[in-house]
Design a protein around this nucleic acid. Structure first.
Lengths: 244, 244
DNA sequence: CGTCCTATGTACGCTAGCGAACATAAATGC
DNA sequence: GCATTTATGTTCGCTAGCGTACATAGGACG
C-alpha cells in the first residue's frame, strides 16, 4: 500500500531453509509457496489435528506445546525463520500430539501436504534440509526436557528469553508473564518473581506484556548451558546461520 | 552350539521394523545385517560421537540419555525391539548430543552407515518406517519433557517401569535404584522412597538390582497419562504392534 | 568365616516452586 | 471520567524433592 517500495519485501528466502535450497529445488516449489500472515495467538494446529500445510516462517515465532489433561502445559520447542512447522507431513505421521501456537506475530510461506510429499519423495535438497532441521528440533526438545528437570526457573527464563530473542529482529518481546508461565510450565507468580529479579538487575524491562531486553550479555552470563548447547547444535546442523 | 535347534533362533524379524519390511526391501539389506549382542551397561555411543551403525534391537532395552555439565542426567527415551538406535545416520546429522546406553542386555542387528544411507536414498519402505519411528521417538521425548515437569516421581517411576516392562519378555527388570535415579534425573534416595511405597503396596518386589513386577494393573492405575499417550502414539505410528 | 563392597533404607534440615488469596496499577470501554 | 478488565506484584503456609550423613544388610570373595 505504501508508495515506496518496501525495504524488505516479503520473500521466501527470508526463511533460512528455503534460502538454502539450490535454484532447481527452489524454483520447483516456488509456484506452490503461499504467503500467509501468522497473527499473534493463532493456533496453527491442535494436538492430533491432521496437518495440511508445512509452514516456513519468515518472521515471528511459533511454539510447539504439549498439554496435559489437567490443563498444565509446557513448550517443547520454539521455531522461527530458521525452521519449519509441520514435520509430521514428511515424517509420515500426518499429525502430532503437540499443538502449535504463534507466540510472536509474523509471516510464513506454506506448502500443501501433497506438494511437500511429492517434493520430499524426490530425495533432493529439501528432503535433506527438512530432515536435518528435524534432528535439530529433536535436540531442542531433548535439551528442554533435561533443563525442565534440573535447572532453576531463573535460568530457564533466561534461556527462553535468549531463544526468543534469537528469532526476533529487535530486542522487544510481546508476551505476558501469564503466557510465559504456560510455556515454561510454572505458575504465573513464579515468573513474576523471576522476571522481577531480572528487571531489578537491569537486564530487562517489563511492562504489561512488553519485555525489552536491555543487556543481552548479562542474560548470557546467567543462562544455563542448555541455551548454548542447543544453539551450537543448530549451528552445526543447519545451513548458513550467518554467524548470528 | 546346542545340539538342539534353538526354539527362538536369532532372527532379524524379532525387530518390529525389520519384520514389517516387504520382502524385496528386507532381502536387499539382509546380507548386510550384522548380529551383535548388547551387553548390560554398554555405552553404544557418547554425546557427539560420529555414529557408524544403525542398530535394530531384537531384545533388550536401550536408553537415550542427556547429560549436563554438572554430571546430572536424564533419560529422554527408551528403545526396544519396536525401534532403532542411531537416527542421526539417516537424519543427516551423523551425531547427536545424547548418549546411548544398554539398560537391559539383549541383541541387535546393525547396518553400517553407508548401507543405511544407500537404502534410505531409495525412498522405500525402510525410509518410511525409519521416519515414522523417528516421529514416534519425538513424541516420547516430548512427553517425557512434560512429565518431568508436571508429574510426581511416584508417577514417573510407574511410567518408567511400565515402559521398560513393555520392552521385556518377562516381569523382571535388572536395574538398581541408583541407575533409575540417573535415568529419571532425581536422587537415589527419592527412588528408594518411591519404590518402597510400591513394594509396600505389593505392586513390585525389589532386591539388590532385581525388580519384579507383581501387579501390572495396579501400576497402570497409578501411572500418569504420559504412559498411555506415548503408547497410543506408538501404536498409531508403528506397524503391527500386534495389540501388545 | 570374616571382610569388603554394593544396594538399600532412614533421618534431618533446607529450598524452590506450588496453591490460594488478595492488592495494585495500567489499559480499555462506555 | 468512571467502571471494568487485564497484567503485575505480594503474602502465607505447604510439600516434593534436594543435599548430606549415616545405618543396615545381602553377596562376593578372600
Amino acid at each position: 500500500m505504501s508508495t515506496l517500495k518496501e525495504t524488505a519485501p516479503h520473500d521466501p528466502k527470508q526463511n533460512r531453509i528455503l534460502a538454502s535450497l539450490p535454484a532447481p529445488d527452489y524454483e520447483r516449489i516456488l509456484p506452490d509457496l503461499e504467503f500467509i500472515p501468522m497473527p499473534l495467538g493463532w493456533t496453527m494446529s491442535e494436538s492430533g489435528d491432521h496437518v495440511n500445510f508445512l509452514h516456513f516462517p519468515t518472521a515471528g515465532i511459533v511454539s510447539l506445546i504439549y498439554e496435559l489433561e489437567n490443563g498444565a502445559s509446557s513448550e517443547i520447542a520454539l521455531v522461527g525463520n530458521e525452521g519449519l512447522v509441520g514435520v509430521s507431513i514428511f515424517m509420515g505421521g500426518e499429525s502430532m500430539p503437540s499443538s502449535t501456537e504463534v507466540q510472536s506475530a509474523g509471516y510464513a510461506y506454506r506448502l500443501s501436504r501433497k506438494i511437500m510429499k511429492r517434493e520430499f519423495a524426490l530425495g533432493g535438497q529439501l528432503q535433506h534440509l527438512a530432515l536435518l532441521y528435524t534432528q535439530a528440533l529433536i535436540s531442542q526438545t531433548s535439551q528442554t526436557a533435561v533443563c525442565n528437570q534440573h535447572h532453576s526457573l531463573d535460568q530457564q527464563l533466561c534461556r527462553w528469553l535468549l531463544m526468543s530473542l534469537d528469532r526476533m529482529h529487535d530486542n522487544k518481546l510481546v508476551v505476558t508473564q501469564e503466557l510465559i508461565s504456560n510455556l515454561l510450565g510454572v505458575r504465573r507468580e513464579s515468573v513474576t518473581m523471576a522476571a522481577g529479579k531480572l528487571q531489578k538487575d537491569g537486564l530487562i524491562t517489563y511492562s504489561r506484556g512488553i519485555i525489552k531486553v536491555l543487556d543481552r550479555s548479562k542474560l548470557e552470563m546467567q543462562v544455563c548451558e542448555c541455551y548454548g548447547v542447543v544453539k551450537k547444535e543448530y549451528d552445526r546442523l543447519l545451513p548458513t546461520p550467518s554467524s548470528k
